[in-house]
Design a protein around this nucleic acid. Structure first.
Lengths: 193, 193, 193, 193
DNA sequence: TATGAATGAGAGTTCATTCAT
DNA sequence: CATGAATGAACTCTCATTCAT
């Protein structure tokens, strides 16, 4: 009858993630999250001090899984190509919801730059590590590479509700490899920094 | 002294587009749009019957420009490769705001499927025409091609606030061509429909 | 059927004043004020941007009447004694509610010093004018005189709900004159500034 | 290691008194009191059954000290003048906080007349005893005398945040004596009851 | 057609109180 | 006795929408 304690925070996060992905951040009310998580409305404010903080926490969880995936890919890879292949493999999990949430997070929280930086910093760091490691294989500056990576991944957002996850995984893999080739002969006016 | 009639509707749409892109659909109030467009709050309801309808209209305008661009690309091209090159050229204009708006539209209005279909139908049609015309060059089904096209385009969203429009245009062109190659040897388990 | 426009703001203020005096600022909800004033809840926010601002406006009205009374007393008086007599006369009107409201205002809004100063400034000014004019009859510094005046007036608060307004008026008159005598031989360690 | 039992109740009362005086009854939460008193939130409900009851207890403590002071003044005095002088001496202690609390108590709890009477009854009684004892020196009815006493004391509230406690003590003394004179020739239309 | 005063549903948030531990 | 996690009622405030002018 009694639900384990910390479990509640987790249930709130899961409900929030699901509902945010389904309906969009602004279209989900705290009451709705509470009802879905089967907790009282007030309980949510025991664990989070505002609605924005829930979004932060939801996004952070996703970023953390990304970071884990990217770290793993970095560790296991011998070269950029392998890294990208492993990355695509890891990143394709639950693409649809994740990308929706992250797009949301990006839009709603970008104005609070310091918070945004704090939450995304690890994510950025691991890509920076990859950039450092395979530096001579990259022909474009880090910022562009990073923006492009995000872009490719985000692109899955609108794809995702029409085609299968498996299909997305294949696309991602191909596109990342394609990016690998493409960037070699790009000349964006900057060159690798 | 007298402002032309249609001019008002247009100013409302322009203000809405700008504000939606800046702050997100839910974070823009009707009052704000009215103030920005220099019309009375009530006036907006002369031209649009709800806030959602403004978003529809804003999205429709963007889709129409897309459709024009895609039609032009289709008309001028001799083969798929040319079509994609021309398309990238056309689609790169004002990528940032447009993609934000469309992501918004997608999220807010997808639940109202019939309205969504109605507004995106022309857009879909022109891609279908391209698919028909270069059918033997496509190796994947239309739905995947279409989802992928949207995905590629949308990907510009999160890229856009870090790198230049010019850079995006180059990426888009490369990626679309890359897609052209990639899809040839994809085997998603479906084959062209 | 239609109520005159500006009338609404006035009705809100009157309802707020009555309810604040009856139940205390914190125990009155916006809904309650709206219901009492026979306007919609939202209407209140057309005229005031927060609950605190309603209290400010209510207090300001009272201060303004005070200021008028004090100005009149200053104008009509030949010496300090006459000024105090006239003041007592003017200040005794509706002592009960007024003093409750002002005590409330004092407590709730004192932290926002600049707003507090802004609202009470005229009130302070007119007493300063009186102090200047009858300077040689005052033996204590302005701040003490002013504090004492406020104190005497505020004292009516708890008196007021047991005895008649007439009785209060007599007391006030006597006490103000008494203060006039008392302050002559006070030695608070400061002397007139 | 073990904190004495009654000590906890006392700490709660002290914290409540301090916080109520600082911020006003409604602006102090139970959590805040608990934190300040270094007890658990639930612990407060071991000793008090509601927030209102805390205010009652805080007010009661103050009234009790008053009563003690007034009893002492009554015992030691030979006539009304002496009584008032001794009273002023006793009442001037910690005027600021006390008067704030009592004004609060007055406002919040007056509606619950029976509770209010219960708590203030001793206070009232001791003044009644003084009134009886020096009956022929009082020219006004008890109720007016009592209201006036309260009024004079309460007046210290708004005085208190600008001038020193010493200054207030002098004022109180003078004013009480002044009251002693004043009331002699008052004719409020009632006469001593 | 054009307006903005008016509105109430519903949002996020707070907090006195309860109760299992 | 002591606790603080849990709760929902009630709060302030926002805003899409209506409608008399």
């Amino acid at each position: 009858m009694q639900i384990k304690k910390e479990d509640k925070k987790d249930r709130i996060l899961k409900s929030a993630e699901k509902l945010f992905a389904e309906k969009g951040y602004a279209n989900v009310s705290i009451s709705e999250i509470a009802k879905d998580a089967k907790v009282g409305k007030g309980t949510i404010y025991v664990y989070f001090s505002s609605k924005e903080e829930i979004l932060d926490a939801v996004a952070l969880r996703i970023f953390e899984e990304f970071v884990d995936g990217a770290r793993y890919a970095l560790e296991m890879s011998k070269n950029l190509k392998e890294f990208l292949e492993l990355l695509a493999e890891k990143l394709s999990k639950d693409v649809e919801n994740r990308s929706k949430i992250l797009a949301m997070f990006h839009r709603e929280r970008l104005k609070d730059r310091s918070k945004y930086r704090e939450i995304t910093s690890e994510y950025r760091k691991v890509f920076m590590a990859a950039y450092e490691r395979y530096r001579d294989e990259f022909k474009i500056p880090f910022d562009e590479m990073f923006a492009f990576m995000r872009g490719i991944f985000m692109s899955a957002y609108t794809m995702a509700d029409n085609i299968t996850e498996e299909s997305i995984k294949i696309f991602l893999k191909k596109i990342l490899l394609c990016f690998f080739d493409v960037q070699k002969d790009m000349d964006c006016g900057s060159g690798a920094s």
